[in-house]
Design a protein around this nucleic acid. Structure first.
Length: 556
DNA sequence: GGATCTACTTAGGAGGAAACGA
DNA sequence: TCGTTTCCTCCTAAGTAGATCC
């Protein structure tokens, strides 16, 4: 069976596309007269452009960002570009800038928004819904579809992740003159805001975006695209999982092949084989090259450097252990100690020979070479398919192992979460533990203790009542109280277990992007668990294609 | 054959809304 | 009913990977 999500000829994604264009954030308004910026202790009335950027900085004053040298220097440099000549001559030292009044004003605004009455909040909500109604939908091939990000990103200071060399730079305001509109030839062309025009209007039906603009900090392109619930995205999602399933049916052969390749005479082949071994076994990302100095220093498999691994002949009673320690996507640390085969271990020793810590581990390999090899093994196969495949197969196996039909609903959900968690751990989906984690854990524990005492009390009351034969009528009442107490205690204990195990693990990313939803739908059917215990509304919308087509007998 | 461009998926965090329990 | 906790939505950065350019 040929996977063909394009229902139209070569690369055509749609025949009709109509929308209102993106929604622009409001223009900047001058500060009230009584709110002042001070330079060197003196009031300075800034022009509109410089003032707007000053406010961006002032708003972030509570944030750690504003204490970092890189952030401050980048900000100051870009801020000065927005100043008039006089302003620039005067304001030459960020340390002499006093943003306090701007900061206070901002905080008051935030407080005021929080303190709004119910009625006021409702008015706001309705105004927002009107905007969504007007700009948040498009017509694509006879279907009214929700747009994902129809709002133009407002200007502000760039906040990268980790030690980003561009943090603090000014992200400029986007004008209609910067925006390219993409729509159908026969559709109405969206009206630009009054007094403005679009950069370009094009009719390219081989792409799925509705509008795009170039962002000034990294020089990359931003797109307005459809919501995940759309047919177009759903079909693409389905295809992704079908490729992963096809990998499942030939993965044994591929594994044998790369084990053989590790012995190859060709250095390139051996490096490719070891990299693939890591990608398959550890679910590492491919690791494209990145331009040095443009982004934070993060790596994936192919871009690993010698400094990122340590080899141990023997570690904690295990032989041939590779210790990984590097920053991956979003500067999330990957730390793992993994026993590997002797052959892999010997090769790694060889790859590292005569190299400096900063040298590439796989100096003969890159993602392009790796993917070319993979697509020759199976059409559509790339490095990231291994992550999808290993994630989904892990979920299926874990669900099989962990869940019992005889469990109560709470226990069934715990099993599901644990299976989900196994995948999140494999894919290294981490989160920072919530600030209140320890406190809320302690709160829960004291609630559990309280309930335990209550249960003990209820039990002894019941015992007492049973002795007195005449108290028969109140007997069943007490029985129910005991039962309810036991149930609540069990629920809380499961909740505590689940929360503890989830401390540093984020389940959302794998659920949304790596787990074939048909596995979960089938599990719900088999276990008689309502689907909405597993997926919320937007997740059910995103996975509508799977909900419709999946029976209890589905196997990934 | 490497650099650059383009289009798309994957990612964690912020903040607000809803749910929960005392 | 109120304060806390949990859930959800939005936001936009940061990846992957194929195409195009030179």
């Amino acid at each position: 069976d040929i996977l063909q999500w394009d229902k139209y000829e070569d690369g055509v994604k749609w025949k009709f596309l109509e929308h209102r264009g993106p929604f622009f954030p409001p223009e900047y308004q001058h500060l009230p007269d009584n709110v002042n910026f001070y330079y060197n202790g003196k009031v300075v009335k800034l022009g509109l452009a410089a003032e707007e950027v000053a406010l961006f900085f002032a708003q972030m004053l509570d944030h750690e960002y504003t204490t970092k040298d890189v952030f401050r220097n980048n900000f100051f440099k870009d801020w000065r570009k927005e100043m008039t000549l006089e302003e620039r001559v005067l304001i030459s030292d960020l340390n002499k800038c006093d943003f306090q009044e701007l900061h206070t004003m901002h905080k008051e605004k935030v407080e005021a928004r929080k303190a709004m009455s119910k009625e006021e909040k409702l008015v706001m909500k309705e105004a927002n819904q009107k905007i969504v109604e007007e700009y948040g939908f498009c017509i694509l091939d006879h279907h009214r579809e929700r747009i994902g990000n129809f709002k133009i990103e407002p200007p502000g200071l760039f906040r990268g992740r980790g030690e980003h060399p561009k943090q603090g730079m000014l992200k400029k305001r986007i004008q209609p003159e910067d925006v390219i509109i993409n729509c159908g030839k026969k559709s109405c062309i969206p009206e630009p805001p009054a007094g403005h025009h679009w950069k370009e209007v094009r009719h390219d039906n081989t792409v799925t975006w509705l509008a795009s603009w170039t962002e000034n900090v990294q020089g990359s392109c931003k797109y307005v695209m459809l919501n995940p619930s759309s047919k177009l995205k759903g079909e693409k999602d389905w295809e992704k999982y079908e490729v992963a399933r096809r990998l499942k049916s030939c993965v044994n052969g591929i594994r044998q092949q790369y084990q053989q390749d590790i012995k190859s005479k060709q250095m390139e082949t051996r490096q490719r084989a070891v990299a693939l071994y890591f990608i398959d076994k550890l679910a590492l990302r491919a690791g494209n090259e990145k331009e040095e100095g443009e982004t934070a220093d993060t790596v994936g498999c192919c871009s690993l450097r010698v400094e990122h691994i340590t080899l141990h002949d023997l570690l904690e009673d295990k032989e041939c252990v590779v210790e990984f320690d590097f920053l991956g996507k979003d500067c999330i640390r990957y730390y793992n100690k993994v026993p590997v085969t002797k052959r892999v271990f010997k090769n790694l020793t060889l790859f590292m020979k005569n190299k400096e810590p900063g040298d590439d581990l796989f100096d003969r390999l890159n993602t392009c070479l790796l993917n070319k090899h993979l697509s020759s093994l199976l059409p559509g196969l790339t490095a990231k398919v291994f992550r999808t495949f290993n994630a989904s197969i892990t979920l299926q196996e874990q669900l099989q192992q962990l869940s019992n039909m005889t469990d109560n609903p709470t226990e069934k959900l715990l099993s599901y979460n644990r299976a989900n968690r196994a995948v999140a751990v494999l894919c290294n989906h981490q989160r920072v533990p919530p600030k209140t984690f320890d406190q809320s854990m302690a709160n829960l524990q004291s609630k559990i203790d309280g309930r335990r005492e209550q249960l003990a009390l209820a039990k002894s009351e019941l015992k007492l009542a049973k002795k007195e034969v005449k108290a028969h009528s109140s007997d069943s009442k007490l029985q129910k109280a005991v039962q309810r107490c036991e149930e609540q205690l069990m629920k809380m204990e499961v909740q505590a277990t689940n929360r503890e195990e989830n401390k540093q693990i984020a389940l959302g990313t794998s659920k949304l992007n790596y787990l074939d939803p048909r596995i979960s739908v089938a599990w719900c059917k088999n276990m008689e668990v309502p689907l909405d215990k597993i997926y919320n509304k937007s997740q059910r919308d995103k996975f509508a294609w799977a909900v419709d087509m999946t029976g209890a007998d589905f196997i990934f």
